[in-house]
Structure formats: structure tokens, C-alpha cells
């Protein structure tokens, strides 16, 4: 893959947590279905706290493969 495509992919991955937290949380503004006993919106926030490091890890891998 050429360099600008890699860069675009990195930006796209970075936007996932941003959209999930900033837009996803207020739109998925519901208690049901409860996940492991937790309200749905809170479970969503927890899920993305765990996924954000994975997104950053993927971005870092792409950055290293670029150089």
C-alpha cells in the first residue's frame, strides 16, 4: 500500500473511538438490553475503553510499517 493510503487508514482507525465515544454514546442512550447486568450505554463506554488501546496499537503498527 502506498504512503497516503496508509496515512488515510491510520486516520480512519483513529476516528473510530472518537465517533464511538462522542457520537455513539449519546445516540445509544438506552438502558436495555443490559449487558452482564450493566446498562447498555455504560457497557458501550467500557467496551470502547478496552478497544481504544487496540486502535492505537493498530495505528502504531501501521506507522512502523510505513517507515
Amino acid at each position: 500500500m502506498n504512503s497516503w493510503r496508509l496515512r488515510a487508514l491510520r486516520i480512519a482507525i483513529a476516528l473510530l473511538p472518537v465517533l464511538a465515544f462522542a457520537v455513539g454514546t449519546p445516540l445509544l442512550n438506552r438502558v436495555e438490553p443490559r449487558i452482564l447486568g450493566l446498562p447498555f450505554n455504560l457497557a458501550w463506554v467500557i467496551l470502547w475503553i478496552l478497544l481504544t488501546p487496540l486502535c492505537l496499537f493498530a495505528i502504531e503498527r501501521l506507522r512502523r510499517s510505513e517507515h
Binding site: 472518537v18 465515544f21 462522542a22 450505554n41 463506554v45 470502547w48 492505537l56
Partner: peptide, 20 residues
């Protein structure tokens, strides 16, 4: 209540900005 979820949410975005 749920308004407090903004705290971990802005944190995560902060870390992404910090990375760059």
C-alpha cells in the same frame, strides 16, 4: 448519572490526540 460518562469519553479522545 449518565452525564458523567463524558469523563472517560473525553479522556480516550485526549489520548488519541496525545498520540499524534
Amino acid at each position: 448519572g449518565a452525564a458523567a460518562y463524558y469523563i472517560p469519553a473525553y479522556g480516550a479522545i485526549g489520548y488519541l490526540v496525545g498520540y499524534a
